[in-house]
Each structure stands twice: as C-alpha cells, then as structure tokens.
C-alpha cells in the first residue's frame, strides 16, 4: 500500500483532469464560471450535457437498454424468493452494522450488538410468555378465566428489572460517548463543507482544497431512462471524482459546515455521522487503522439530489499521503499564481 504510485487508486482519473477540476473549483468564495456553477448545481444542465453524450453512444445505448430490461425481469423472478432462501448468496449482502476500521467504530458495533442481544433476551421472555399463554390459555382448550387483575409483587418486579437492564445498557455507551467527543490533538484537520449537492474538502493549513462530486459513471447511469444498468457501474452512486485522502493511523479531525442547507457527513466504516449546518462549525474525528476505501453518503435530506452526493474516504499509508499532498499543493500553487495574473 505504502510503496508505488500513490495515485494508482484514484479510480483511473488522469492527473490532468483532476488538476483542471481543482483549478476551476478551488475557491468557494470566488465567483465561478457558469459552467462550473451549473456542473454542481443545476441538474437540468447535466441532463443536457449527458443528452449529447447519449446521442454519440446511441448504439450501445440500445443494447444496454434491452439488457437492463432483461436484467430487471430476471430480478423480479429470482429476486425475493432466492434471496430470502439464501442469505449468503451475494457477497455484498450486509445484514449488520459494519465493524468498521476505527477503534470507536468497533466499540460502537460492540454496543450495538450488546443492546441487540439484550433485546433478543427480553423478546424471548416476553414473547415466550405471550405465546405460551396464547396456546395454553385458550377457550378451545377449555381454559377457565382466572379472576385476578392485580398483583403488586409482579408489577414491582417488572418495573424494577427494566430499570436495572437499562442502566446496564447505558453505562458503557456513556464511556464511548466521551471518547467520541474527544477531538484533541489531531494529526490532520479537514474542513468539510456541504453543498447542494457535493462536498468540499479543505486540508487545514495545507493549501489543498477541492470539491468531491458523484463520479461520472454514476452520474450518467443515475438518470431516468439512461439505459445504463446500475449493476454494470462499479460502486454505483458511491463513487466520487476525487476522494478525501487521509493517512492511516492518524487522528483526523473533521470540521463540518455547510454552504446552503443542512447536510450530514456519514461514513459508517468510520462510525461518523455529523450534521453540516450553515453558519455553524461542527466537529468530529476518526482514526482509521486499516488502509482502504470507505464509502458513505449524505444522511440529511438536502433537496433534490440528496441521494447523489456520496462520500469516499481513501485511507493510505503516510508516505503515500505525503506524496499525494505534495502533488495537490503543486496543483494549487499553479492555480493561485494564475489567479494572481488574472487580477
């Protein structure tokens, strides 16, 4: 992971393209050119753009369309039944909260499982008693109704026991909550700004900042009647043009704010979800222990394209990160000087 080209994982986007995007969109405060502005904000414009592309590729488009119909029918036929029977059929199938790659995500999942098993235990007792009663105390079995309608002892017991269980549940999570709030001593701070409908990442004190928008493949396939089967798009709706890159085993502090409406930055493998609120600064943190690519989505309804602003966090080795950062800075510097020339 550490060795070799640190950019090999950036989804095959040529470096030139990435730099151009950085150039155009680097300054959130700058008045952007119309094209840039539309690209991020006006779905109609995107539709038009993609419409041109569609014409160019009409031949493949038709085949893809038929294919998607077939796939859909197959899906309807096989979908529910097969999958109900075979829970492990698909490797993608997640039934549970991911364990994640941070100490706190693992702890969160532990707590989740502990409460879950408590609930199962209570359910077994309560449902068991009810089912027993339903089968044994039925009129058709000749049951004669008892007359009791009060029992102080029982009522005290089933008030007291839940209180104890709840305290047992809550105490470990209180400890975890304290850790979650501890944003001290970060190795890296990233300011994350939510936009309708993309994210902006700015590396604090590093002069590296860029937008992160839905990847083009998903962008093309997401439209109604696009003719592209989402199954054929890798990481459909969960891929971006430019991910957030952070070093492994480093404490990354995330400062969150928003440009327009509320957003929420959620990556479940990092056990992070925090709202981005215009005019306010929220903070949270994570320390990823395993290099890899982690995906998430905006979790707070933010308008039309709320479902189309994914988050991709790429955790790389420190060396790879440093190299990446240096490269990004180079890109930014050249933009900044170009900016100076324009004035």
């Amino acid at each position: 992971m550490q060795a070799g080209d640190p950019f090999s994982k950036l989804r095959g986007v040529p470096i030139g393209v990435r730099q151009r995007r950085t150039q155009a969109l680097n300054f959130p405060g700058k008045r952007l050119s119309d094209d840039d502005w539309h690209d991020g904000n006006c779905a109609n414009y995107i539709l038009r753009l993609d419409g041109h592309k569609k014409e160019n590729a009409s031949a493949q488009w038709h085949t893809a369309d038929c294919l998607s119909e077939k796939l859909m029918i197959r899906k309807i036929l096989t979908g529910a039944l097969t999958l109900l029977a075979a829970g492990t059929a698909s490797a993608d199938w997640e039934l549970n909260m991911p364990r994640g790659v941070t100490e706190l995500s693992a702890a969160t999942q532990d707590i989740h499982m502990v409460i879950f098993w408590w609930c199962v235990a209570i359910a077994v007792v309560v449902f068991g008693a009810m089912i027993y009663s339903i089968f044994m105390h039925r009129k058709s079995k000749g049951a004669v109704p008892a007359k009791f309608s009060h029992n102080m002892a029982a009522e005290v017991i089933w008030t007291a026991i839940p209180v104890v269980i709840l305290i047992v549940m809550a105490v470990p999570s209180a400890e975890l909550m304290i850790k979650l709030e501890d944003t001290r001593d970060p190795d890296l701070t990233v300011v994350v700004t939510g936009y309708q409908w993309k994210w902006h990442y700015s590396y604090q004190g590093e002069d590296v900042a860029f937008y992160s928008t839905l990847a083009r493949a998903s962008q093309a396939a997401r439209r109604r009647d696009s003719g592209i089967d989402p199954e054929t798009v890798e990481n459909y709706l969960l891929d971006v043009d430019k991910p957030l890159v952070v070093p492994v085993d480093a404490k990354v502090r995330i400062l969150l704010t928003s440009n327009d409406v509320l957003h929420s930055w959620w990556v479940s493998d990092l056990a992070i979800k925090k709202d981005a609120i215009p005019g306010f600064m929220n903070e949270t943190w994570f320390k990823a222990e395993v290099p890899g690519i982690y995906r998430g989505q905006c979790a707070e309804l933010c308008g039309m394209d709320h479902g189309y602003m994914p988050i991709v966090v790429e955790v790389v080795g420190q060396e790879a990160f440093d190299a990446w950062l240096l490269n990004e800075k180079g890109a930014v510097t050249s933009v900044a000087s170009a900016e100076g020339d324009l004035r």
Binding site: V126, R138, K139, T159, A170
Partner: peptide, 30 residues
C-alpha cells in the same frame, strides 16, 4: 436525552407486561 429516553421504556414495558398478564390464565378466543 439518552437516559430520559431509556426511562420511557419502563412505563412502556409496564404496559406490555400488563397486557401479557391480562391474557395469562384467561380463556382466549381469536
């Protein structure tokens, strides 16, 4: 807010248990 929320489970539990006890040793039809 976590503790106050958990507290609500107590009276709710009382209700569920009371319904259970109402059925207990009854003569049920369905």
């Amino acid at each position: 807010f976590m503790f106050s929320t958990l507290l609500i489970a107590v009276p709710t539990g009382v209700k569920v248990f009371n319904w259970m006890a109402t059925m207990w040793k009854g003569s049920m039809t369905f």
